[in-house]
Design a protein around this nucleic acid. Structure first.
Lengths: 333, 333
DNA sequence: TTGTAAGCGTTATCAC
DNA sequence: GTGATAACGCTTACAA
């Protein structure tokens, strides 16, 4: 692969001049410039940005760590990040921690060795996240979706409590008083806060809370299936279920389907996060939805601002509002 | 951020010696080594692999270009790639071309400037793929899922013709003779070959081919919906439909659902690639499925072999067999 | 067992 | 306008 030196030789100039035209710094005689551009063309020269990064101390890369790329939420978010980042001249390293704190650690080290300019991460666990101890020197970090309490990082999250509250409130409005919860893991904010919203709605509307209705899953499909089964096998089963994420909702729906129960009649369901199935099934499923792509874009924009030196007294926390998308599944009264 | 120099100074040795212990080259007195390791610890030193890559001429990175990260096929494949790559010390750059040839070009340039050691790509279009003209110097490339005719690259693909053939054959066995096709775009092999298999099965089983049954979609959900509508609105509608990818199948199913047609009775469906919906709906959907994760792993392994200098007379083409997963939707006769 | 120094492909600072 | 050259943080002969 040819270097700036080769181009310089071919165009009969010094490498400094070549560098000037590559970087559009001006101050080069037009005739020289065109000679250089020709040489670049002929040699099929491509500047080595990694050599450049050594001297400018910027790699123009950002690392993105997600816990489960197979959860349809993340591909959309990633699209948002990637698109925004590319527009600003950044390339993204994507890594999947598989909800594992250890894996998250390994990825973090690898990314640090690669000197990414910044990081967007959805941590595998708030409490023992490697980010808590992590020394990423001065590279900024933006937390996505999962907040870490008291951390010094910017974050973009959803008002999970509110989202869950709205969902449960909707069920109450529809007349339900026996509402089951298939909750998320309590080691991450989306898990905890959605449960909090569930409880708050019960309190506000003076509906007795039944501990046996509050179940904790792990955001994966299988747990939705299993916990759905558990709820519906009770002697006093709930008449409605709020499921705290898309994959668990999927599992729950599969269980309901398998038991030939009728959605919206035998059991009413509200999910958190939309999914293909939601608009497919009959009746279509009411869900709490959020702007995934936008979340990615915001995260990227916060990060790039920091990379470019923006300073703030406090870490910025962008809280987006989820939206209740009411479909027929909860609309029969 | 501290450098090898800082470590050297702190440990009272030369940078060469530090380098030796970082890279586990041996030949360092144990006492010196432990002094150095201590210094590394204290300074929280992390080697700059991008500086290293300048001298060893290897970045230990691979680029991955997919056309649509929101298609559930790709996240699984990516998982396979990433996992394998990381095991071998490579980090992946992921980029999404959004089925656009121009975007693919831009990504290719960016990745070249970053000097990735190799590339795994699912091209946006076989015919005018930038890869055809592309000079990636000596960096190896592996084609994934979409083959490029006469290209010099290794590839891992599915026997699409066979997969489609098997699917249609199955429909024929079930007694169908009016079989519609929601095909993929003809500018990529999966599109063309699946149509080929559809036709071949008709020929082999002496079923007349009706041109009006052969429709071309774009692998996106909307086209499945639209073409399904078109097929089912015909005066002589097909009794079965073969849909050439998961997203189009989703669209098709949504249409069927919306029209309150009964799957497996009013219309029989076979899809290419599995999807959540397949095991959800009643009756569960028969599909052609393929080992996505494995495809990713294979692609990564071929690539890394090449990166490590393996040479072959001919480009290697790994053709995996898809599997017909027969579920109730086609099993009523 | 350890150190010195050249070199990787750039950018940036000076001179001219 | 243009050219030398130091520097970026490392690896790798080669020397000691």
């Amino acid at each position: 692969m040819s270097t700036i030196k080769d181009v310089a030789k071919k165009a009969n100039v010094s490498i400094a001049t070549v560098s000037r035209v590559i970087n559009c710094l001006g101050g080069v005689k037009p005739s020289t410039e065109s000679r250089i551009r020709e040489a670049i063309e002929e040699l099929n020269y491509s500047p080595n940005v990694i050599a450049r990064s050594m001297v400018v101390k910027r790699t123009q890369t950002i690392g993105v760590i997600v816990p489960d790329i197979a959860n349809p939420f993340f591909p959309e978010v990633i699209k948002g990040i990637e698109e925004y980042a590319r527009e600003y001249g950044f390339t993204t390293f994507l890594a999947n921690s598989d909800e594992s704190v250890d894996e998250e650690s390994r990825i973090l080290s690898a990314l640090r060795e690669r000197r990414v300019d910044g990081l967007i991460v959805t941590t595998a666990s708030e409490l023992d996240s490697p980010l808590v101890e992590f020394e990423f020197d001065s590279s900024p970090i933006v937390l996505l979706d999962r907040y870490i309490h008291k951390s010094p990082y910017d974050s973009v999250v959803i008002d999970n409590t509110r989202g869950a509250y709205t969902a449960v409130k909707h069920l109450v409005t529809e007349g339900h008083t026996k509402i089951g919860l298939i909750g998320g893991p309590s080691n991450v904010t989306p898990g905890r806060d959605r449960t909090k919203g569930y409880i708050q709605a019960h309190t506000d509307f003076e509906i007795p809370i039944r501990q046996e209705y509050i179940l904790e899953g792990d955001f994966k499909e299988e747990s939705g299936y299993r916990l759905g089964e558990k709820l519906l096998a009770m002697s006093q089963p709930p008449t409605a279920i709020f499921s705290a994420n898309n994959l668990m909702t999927l599992g729950l729906l599969k269980y309901i389907q398998r038991r030939h129960l009728q959605l919206g009649k035998d059991i009413t369901v509200i999910g958190f996060d939309d999914l293909d199935l939601a608009t497919f099934i009959e009746p279509p499923l009411t869900v709490v939805s959020r702007p995934m792509r936008y979340m990615g874009e915001i995260a990227a924009s916060l990060l790039i601002e920091r990379i470019n030196g923006a300073e703030f007294k406090e870490p910025r926390k962008i809280v987006l509002l989820p939206q209740l998308v009411i479909r027929k599944s909860t609309n029969n009264k």
